[in-house]
Simulated assay, not measured.
Amino acid sequence: MASEQVLDVVVRRHVFDSDWPFQAVLDGIFGGITRPDIGALLGKLAASTSYEQFSSLVRQARGSAGLMLFLQLDLDVALALDPQAKGQTGRRLVRLIAGNPVTMEQMTRHVPDAGSYAPVTILLQQTPGGTRVAYDSVASALARYHDAAASQVARRLDAEVLGLLRQVTGVPASASP
């Protein structure tokens, strides 16, 4: 029998406002998130014959924040073409989708719905005074599932991402809520 459920998921969004230039913040993020040839890497991962080999390949490919870029969406291209987007043209808006297959496996092993939140999204917006960066906490999205193991992995993931974002925006760690 088919059914549909509607679940409310509360997500904590971290927003960093920085007077640092957009490109400097984006470059800083790429200092902690690698940009491998994702197609080739996924092929190697699929050909892995053991979890140890799989994990080793991921360790070699990930950046200092434990992540690799899966996709970059330059949303500003659509804004430039939309006549209704007054005041938005000329500013950058980029969505980075980054993750770590081992981390994703560790969370989805306990809570399959974690696959909806990992890989993570980092949204960068060029503002008149600098750059705004937004990140939705994976731990907050998984809280409704009450799974200690998945929550522990999600908190570690959030700490790595938030540490990188604080560093590249110049926001001190003590400023976090």
Rank of each mutant, 00 (worst) to 15 (best):
T121L: 01
V15I: 09
V133Q: 05
A149H: 10
G32F: 12
Q88M: 12
R132A: 04
A2P: 12
L69V: 04
H146D: 15
E160W: 10
F54V: 11
R132C: 02
V102E: 03
A143L: 15
A149M: 09
S3H: 14
S116R: 11
G28A: 12
S116V: 02
L67S: 01
R109L: 03
R92V: 01
T34V: 11
I122T: 07
Q53S: 12
D147H: 15
R155Q: 15
L42T: 02
F22I: 09
Q88P: 00
Q125D: 00
D158A: 04
L73F: 03
V133C: 03
L165V: 05
R91F: 08
S50M: 03
A173G: 08
P177T: 04
K44W: 00
N100C: 13
L67N: 02
L93T: 01
L142V: 12
R95Y: 12
A173D: 08
L123I: 03
L96M: 04
G31S: 05
N100T: 10
P172F: 05
D19H: 14
L93G: 01
P172H: 11
S176W: 15
D27R: 15
P119A: 09
G87W: 02
H110D: 12
G130K: 14
R62F: 00
R59S: 07
S176K: 10
D19Y: 09
V10Y: 03
Q72H: 00
A134Q: 14
G163Q: 09
A141N: 10
Y51K: 00
Q72L: 06
S140E: 08
E52P: 07
P172R: 15
H14S: 07
Y51E: 06
E105P: 01
P119W: 03
V6Y: 04
M104T: 04
Q5H: 08
A98S: 12
H14Y: 11
F70I: 05
G99T: 13
D37T: 01
A114G: 14
V15E: 10
V58I: 07
R109C: 00
V138F: 08
F70C: 06
D76L: 00
D19Q: 11
A46S: 03
P21W: 02
L165E: 11
D136S: 14
P177E: 04
Q53G: 09
G32V: 09
M68T: 07
I38Y: 11
S174P: 05
R35I: 06
P177Q: 06
L124Q: 02
A118F: 10
L142I: 10
I33H: 12
I38G: 09
S151A: 12
A149W: 00
A150F: 13
E4L: 09
S48K: 10
A24Y: 09
D113P: 06
D76I: 00
A98T: 01
R155T: 11
S64V: 02
M107F: 13
R166G: 09
K44R: 14
V25M: 05
S18E: 08
T49Y: 01
P112Q: 05
A85K: 12
V153P: 08
P119C: 02
